[in-house]
Design a protein around this nucleic acid. Sequence first.
DNA 1: AGTGAATAAATTGTATACAATAACTTGTTT
DNA 2: AAACAAGTTATTGTATACAATTTATTCACT
Lengths: 217, 217
Amino acid sequence: MKNSDIIASALEESILRGDYQVGERLNEVNLAAQFKVSRTPIREALQKLSKSGLVEQIHRRGVFVRRHSPVELIELFEVMAELEASCGRLAALRISDEALEQLKEANSKCKAAMLAGEADTYYYANEVFHMIIYKQSGNSILEQETKRLHQRLKPYRRLQLHVRGRMPQSMSEHEDIVEALTQGDADQAAQLLRGHVAIQGEKFRHLMSSFERIDKI
Amino acid sequence: MKNSDIIASALEESILRGDYQVGERLNEVNLAAQFKVSRTPIREALQKLSKSGLVEQIHRRGVFVRRHSPVELIELFEVMAELEASCGRLAALRISDEALEQLKEANSKCKAAMLAGEADTYYYANEVFHMIIYKQSGNSILEQETKRLHQRLKPYRRLQLHVRGRMPQSMSEHEDIVEALTQGDADQAAQLLRGHVAIQGEKFRHLMSSFERIDKI
DNA sequence: AGTGAATAAATTGTATACAATAACTTGTTT
DNA sequence: AAACAAGTTATTGTATACAATTTATTCACT
């Protein structure tokens, strides 16, 4: 593992944690001093980051923490819904009994967290649930791509969990999904997962629009 | 546009054209001399290439032209089928009358090329057909990702066109797809496109297996 | 002759130096 | 006082120099 890889993941974590403002420029010399290396590995790391869409590189201006436009976010959620649907479709045909058990277990943890009102615990268990389905698609490239987009939407998805009444609804959707996967009903699994993710996108849109209204007051 | 971007796309084209053997190492100093620049922009270009999966970067060993394993290729075709299905699903709901006309036009060109036995012309018109559907998904991120994978599979897709009897079958599938899009039948459009691409993957598998048998003789 | 260790050469990763360009400052003009 | 222009500073892009590591070669030894 190269030095620039380590720096890249450190920066990624830092950005996702919100250490930088959106639109903020990442200064190469500062980062070099901070990480106690020369500018070369910093530049390599920044280029790696730009691949994931986390930062934008503008010629002769530098790299900036990226702000997704509302349209872009809607599109990202839509693609996410389609990818998850594909994972579900394939998983319905290929999922192992063991994985089905793991799904039910993750679901139980979701339910417990919901009843206890622990949003963070719920969030983690929910992630496990989805990751299992990605893996059970039996297609490592699809799994990888879906994970990548999942990661990219993480900060936004987290927001919309606090929307009132979302957790119970999400839970019941999970149960339907497990049922479809158990039955091996590919179309049904795909459709349920598409809806499950798409509704997150819509909830997020409403959240965004309410933020904008607050901003304007 | 940076210098390294220009070099990256030049190298990409070069690799796709088959100028390098799979597994061949891309020597930085040679490339630097060839492009008449220093190693720095070459290294940046190689890192850009590694994101597209065209080359593999191994620490302290260099970057190598990548060989897709058979399993990986099957998986890539499967993801392609799913992405195209998603494009078709959304396009069925959003496609413009103008785009529908363009699809029919591209299809006519396909048919003409087929009757004339011009594989290359057919190949190009076929590409136009699919690109229109990507665009008409109305989701620029989905369009972009689908195009990226399409590009990645280009060299392999091209091979399997020469399989006997594929062109007429492909043509009739195209007509059914246009019909589903005209009707606005999202599920049907998705299913037809999935099948249309998946069958390419299968044909390719057969082709591969026949190559392997020839190798073994 | 074949194998293995020691050494040399080649190659990548990192640091630094320089060049080109953008951002900022300051002073002048209206 | 505001706007603009020239000059200065800061920052990115590129080249080169050096260090670390891998690969190739040579030569001794079995």
